[in-house]
């Protein structure tokens, strides 16, 4: 089971990002735990400046926009 964190201050794009990841995960049957991280200090510690950003297993894999479905599928596979 993968822990996926969506970093962002709760703006609409961050909420959409979390939704789309949950949706794609359900489609490919991956077990994930999607957490929204809104604490500015935590976001800073990941070195992220453009939100929404996605962190999988403590690695920042994406930042600055809503990720594409293809990208999400790629992360879930590996």
């Amino acid at each position: 089971m993968k822990t996926i964190k969506v970093l962002g201050s709760g703006c609409s794009k961050c909420i959409k990002t979390a939704e789309i990841i949950t949706k794609v995960a359900a489609e490919v049957g991956a077990e994930v735990d999607v957490i929204k991280e809104t604490d500015p200090e935590a976001i800073m510690n990941y070195g992220v400046m453009s939100t929404p950003a996605v962190v999988i297993d403590e690695q920042v894999v994406h930042s600055g926009s809503i990720p594409s479905q293809d990208a999400i599928r790629g992360w879930l596979k590996s």
Binding site: C11, C14, E41, M44
Partner: peptide
């Protein structure tokens, strides 16, 4: 909405 992460 990114002002805070940018500031930090």
């Amino acid at each position: 909405c990114s002002s805070i992460p940018v500031f930090l």
